[in-house]
């Protein structure tokens, strides 16, 4: 049952990635690939989280997978890798944590009771730290293939199997 739940969640992560792809006006040939990439990233993230590993490392692994596959996709579909990787990681962006932190900060201005204040402060700092570290892990994860290959363009990268294709 847990497995089914993970699959469903990943499917919807793929749909969400496709929604953002349309919002960002990606070329039509890239949309289905972005949906698949988003689902793969979600699958890895939710599976890893299922093993009681924190959301930060799980997001990092998902984003790394997206970063690596998006380079292959870039060659198959003839577009730069960021066109694939950015919409696919958007479902993992910690929007919820970011605005919970903002709501917490706003709430902190009006709480008088010390205990309530501490409770609110703890959750606000927790949400803010999670948002920040998830973002850093997403950014690094997507950039990992480029960081490892140390090339300026994927045309010269080792991850690129077909040398003659233009990107």
């Amino acid at each position: 049952m847990i497995f089914l739940e993970i699959i469903t969640k990943s499917f919807w992560a793929g749909i969400a990635a496709m929604g953002f792809a349309v919002l960002f006006n990606v070329p039509r040939r890239a949309i289905l690939s972005i949906g698949m990439l988003g689902a793969v990233g979600g699958l890895i993230k939710f599976t890893v989280m299922n093993f009681d590993i924190g959301i930060i490392f799980a997001s990092f692994l998902g984003a790394t997978a997206i970063g690596i596959i998006s380079i292959q996709m870039a060659h198959m579909r003839n577009s730069p890798p960021l066109v694939f990787s950015i919409p696919s990681v958007i479902p993992m962006v910690p929007g919820m944590f970011a605005y919970k932190m903002m709501l917490g900060l706003i709430a902190l201005t009006s709480i008088e009771n010390t205990d309530d204040y501490l409770q609110s402060l703890i959750s606000t700092v927790n949400n803010g730290a999670k948002a920040m570290f998830i973002l850093i892990s997403l950014g690094t994860g997507v950039a990992i293939p480029m960081l490892l290959s140390r090339k300026e363009s994927i045309k010269k990268s080792k991850f690129n199997k077909k040398k003659e294709v233009t990107v």
């Binding site: 919807w12 969400a16 496709m18 929604g19 953002f20 919002l23």
Partner: peptide
Amino acid sequence: MVGLAGAGF
């Protein structure tokens, strides 16, 4: 599509 993305979230 963005509505579907919202439903997906």
